[in-house]
Design a protein around this nucleic acid. Structure first.
Lengths: 148, 148
DNA sequence: TCAAATGAAGATAAAAACATCTTTTTTGGA
DNA sequence: TCCAAAAAAGATGTTTTTATCTTCATTTGA
């Protein structure tokens, strides 16, 4: 459903939302270590996200990536769109071109409510709101601390 | 979640379940046309499924593919396993290695019930039962008739 | 001012997924 | 017996995804 790239991107942005701001930046190296993602690949991703104004960065010593207040007002869906586009997420579970309520594929009625749930969760909340939930519910972005 | 290959495979097998038996076989060409899938690619897939005893076939004139009674006792999950393996389906939605109830990723609680539903629907029913449901509920495998 | 840290950019590469082409084997029927 | 139809098998090609490497540009702070 999501490419590796999109998964890395989501996790990075949530990570940045929790650990950075304009005054506290983090470099790719650290981020990649914390999230256990391939470092050069993540660097590319963050570059793209930066160009698309989904994350912020500064160069030079003490530089790094961070989420500005503006960045925090985007949604997870904005990230997915930027990396994967919308197609993969919206298409039929069995690959039918015109699977819809009136001509459902055999798993349509199972797949649709789930997709809607995920979609609305990705679209309707800002990164900011999402992160606050994460902090409340104690969900997890990296499991490095737990020994993988 | 599912590769194209797995999607084609599932659709082919359900198609064969509905339209064939030991006496009424169908060739790749026809199947590929009906399901709008790339023909040589589907041929490869059916070969693999045949070698794994998930579909049956005979060579020569009037030959083709069909689902034997034994084949019909398999589950959709058997197909998925055979084509994609189990990993992609079971892994965390955000790619975490140890995402579980006690260390859930931010979308864990949404993703898990869905996966369980799909999984049990794929594991617990035989092809035979699945097809009967399809016939009852009028869900659709190909939309060729509808003009795509 | 300059060295070091950092992101940006572009080229390259490896692997997986997706797809096709060609040849061989089998087999029913004329 | 021989031909044509069909699957089986194996080689090859293409595209996308994933990943790395190298060089360049920028900025801070000593």
């Amino acid at each position: 459903m999501l490419s590796n790239a999109a998964k890395y991107a989501i996790r990075s942005i949530l990570y940045l939302a929790i650990h950075t701001d304009r005054k506290n930046k983090i470099g790719v190296k650290k981020i990649a270590e914390e999230l256990s993602t391939p470092q050069p690949f993540l660097a590319k991703l963050l570059q793209q996200l930066s160009k698309s104004k989904l994350v912020s960065s500064t160069k030079g010593p003490n530089g790094g990536f961070f989420l500005s207040e503006a960045n925090q007002q985007n949604s997870i869906w904005d990230i997915v769109e930027n990396i994967d586009g919308t197609v993969k997420f919206e298409e039929c579970f069995l690959g039918l071109k015109k699977c819809e309520d009136k001509n459902p594929c055999p798993v349509h009625h199972m797949a649709v409510p789930f997709k809607q749930k995920i979609l609305s969760s990705f679209k309707d909340k800002t990164i900011d709101e999402f992160t606050r939930e994460i902090e409340l519910s104690g969900t997890v972005l990296t499991l490095k601390k737990l020994g993988i």
